[in-house]
Amino acid sequence: MAVGLGGALAVDASADDDTTADLCYTLTSETVEGPYYIPADKIRQDVTEDQDGIPLTLTLKVIDAETCEPLRNAAVDIWHCNAVGVYSGYEASGSGGGGGGPATGTLTATPTGTPTGAPPSGGPGGPGGGGHQEPTDDTRYLRGTWRTDQRGHATFRTVVPGWYQGRCAHIHVKVHVDGTWTDAGYEGGHACHTGQLFFAEQAVLLTQEVEPYSTNTTTRTTLDEDTIYPGNGHAGGLLYLSYDRKRIARGVRARLILGVAPDETHDGG
């Protein structure tokens, strides 16, 4: 939960990104994959393409929850909707009534790997998070995969996600291990974590006043109303946020430590 500092800066800094003493031995909650996952399309840190929105720098640190050691060379996937609730690759699905037109783009990389496990049931806003759907187009904005460094960090540049029918603002994330990095990307291995990242209500309320978020006419589901958020704070994917409360349009920095079990498989099914 963000708190005001100096009257303008809103920051949740109660845990240093590199201090894991209080976070070791705590697994980050697993959630459903959802219907809009496309595996390893783009190996890149900047996933923005030409999407409008509040700039977001997202830093994730992946650790082994048992040993507290950082996971090096893991592949981290993120994907999320744009400011008006539309997912790339699935523009035909719209935004659940959110309105607004998404940008277009062209697929420039070949996916490596396929989803595994049985898809969950239910619609995108329902309790199951929606079964996997095949892409309807070649757009791939706001999606990317990046390699964790020696300290377990993977940093992405994107925009703050909007919302769509039945869901609060969120980012999907997967962590893959035991695979091989090649010129084509990341191959093999398994997903040891599938989860979602969430935003404190104070920040989302501020985004509603900024274009193009202000053009999203979908009734917004709050964090507490969301059926996917596990309600357990940072262990459940609630991000630590830093932003200027009076000028959130300038950008947001978000971070979280992901505690995973690298020997297990959690593919979101």
Rank of each mutant, 00 (worst) to 15 (best):
L23H: 09
A200W: 14
G144Q: 03
L71H: 01
A8P: 01
T219F: 07
L71M: 13
T180K: 07
S121D: 15
T215L: 05
T67I: 04
G268L: 02
Q150R: 15
G152Y: 01
V252S: 04
H266Y: 09
V62F: 05
A10S: 05
G101M: 08
Q133A: 13
D18S: 13
Q150H: 10
I63A: 02
G6N: 13
E211Q: 12
D50H: 10
C68S: 09
T227Y: 02
A154V: 15
G100F: 03
L9A: 09
T110Y: 00
K61N: 01
I171E: 02
R255N: 14
S88R: 02
G128P: 02
G195F: 01
G89Q: 04
P35A: 09
A200L: 00
D18M: 12
R253E: 14
P102Q: 04
E30H: 11
E49A: 11
A118E: 15
E30R: 10
T59H: 10
G96R: 01
Y186P: 04
Y87C: 07
T112A: 07
T20R: 05
G233F: 04
G237K: 01
I54T: 11
K42D: 10
A235M: 05
Y36N: 05
A169T: 15
V84M: 10
H176S: 13
R157W: 02
H153W: 05
L206G: 00
E66T: 14
K246E: 10
D244E: 11
L23N: 06
D41H: 06
G233V: 06
R143N: 08
G162D: 07
